[in-house]
Design a protein around this nucleic acid. Sequence first.
DNA 1: ATATAAAATGTAATTATTACATTTATTTAT
DNA 2: ATAAATAAATGTAATAATTACATTTTATAT
Lengths: 248, 248
Amino acid sequence: MCLNRYLITRRMVTNGDFMGTYINKDKVLVAVDCIIFGFDPQREVLQLLLIKRDFKPKKGRWSLMGGFMKKHEDLREAAVRVLTELTGLDNIYLEQLKTFGKIDRDPVERTVSVAYSALINTTEHDSGLINQYSARWFDISEVPDLIFDHDFMVKTAIKRLQYRASVQPIGFELLPEKFTMRQLQKLYEEIFNQKLDKRNFIKKINSLKVLEKLKEKDMTSSRKGSFLYRFNHQKYQEKLKAGFVFKV
Amino acid sequence: MCLNRYLITRRMVTNGDFMGTYINKDKVLVAVDCIIFGFDPQREVLQLLLIKRDFKPKKGRWSLMGGFMKKHEDLREAAVRVLTELTGLDNIYLEQLKTFGKIDRDPVERTVSVAYSALINTTEHDSGLINQYSARWFDISEVPDLIFDHDFMVKTAIKRLQYRASVQPIGFELLPEKFTMRQLQKLYEEIFNQKLDKRNFIKKINSLKVLEKLKEKDMTSSRKGSFLYRFNHQKYQEKLKAGFVFKV
DNA sequence: ATATAAAATGTAATTATTACATTTATTTAT
DNA sequence: ATAAATAAATGTAATAATTACATTTTATAT
């Protein structure tokens, strides 16, 4: 199990060819942990998907969904696998966040954890799987204490989300296909954790020219109803190529 | 060597306590690779420090300076160790960049590599150590093909440097303590890879109010000489606390 | 004294951001 | 049929930030 797959021979070693580069180096577990963001378009709150551990250590505590990278698996693939396992979704927006490598971050085994940040459209995930994992959506303002260094991972992920949302149209990953301006604004308010002026926000968004206004209205929120919008991916891609920089 | 330090007993396993979480998981090598940036204030070019490998694989080829994380060492500490080994410097600006985990990125062993980006003041490093490692400074425009995925790491590091330089005063990490406005401008031009307007640049930098103009002049560049400036770390820290955001 | 060469300096035009209040459209209640 | 209620939709003026652009100054070398 600990033998080298790659046949490094004694000759090569004494030869100095590998200069001890690969010999006797420590191997460790590589984990992936996923910070999964969602947005409830009804309640207009940013949320985090957490699992309740039913295994040790820290059994019964809340944590990020995670897993271990296999030897014959790409790192990113491992993160995708973990996500699909929990949500039933593939084709999720997934961004590598940061790698956490303090010696004692996991009390059981030396583990380096690569954190990935995922954005999902909460209206589409598989809630059956989520129940199976005793997982739950938490409002971002009500996230409980998490195990290990997961709190810190979440903090880091929120910062990155704020940056990312300001220079890339990732907000749309979190919304249903059709959404109202109000929902979009509330989403950004949740991400940046600050109130925005309605008129200025709409002006800004419209100036980007990457949304289409639909004929349909959402009638659940008011008597008047509010028009639905859709993100035009193609338009955005064209603008990107033309050197356009999205900036909220 | 492959035994578990943490005494996971048969009881615990059959108990389902660990649910197979830590048992039989693959361990891999974790490397750190350093993208080391410098700036030659005489020639006014951004540079990269590379080593010539005198060991296999890819002996004789240029690569980033790297090493393997030890089991009983923090990840970041490993990067610091590698940097100190090559430059003799500690207290280097060091930022974790990204983790690279494609299956075959290293042909010898499954290795996940955590890339770190370092900024150093080239007037201060230990050139003896650099020679010892057959290392060399390359102008950023003349970086040779590198081994493995190191080219991609460098590309990623440059993008991050551009972002970082636009929101944090990291430019000053790359300059000697005292520098001219011209050197500062040339540094930013190198980082952003575009010409900047001299008057607008100076106006911008002055408006940040984090530099002190010294009485001294640098006389090497012109007959008139140009005033030297110094970054005031304390002033910057105070402004940071007051909610100031550095932005070039 | 003059030539040289980079350093130092300012202004006007354009663009982006901010602050702020009223009217409109539809449904529900009477 | 009318009125009340409620969120949606809309515009403008003031301020701040960014851009484009050319001349004068200063110390040294000749």
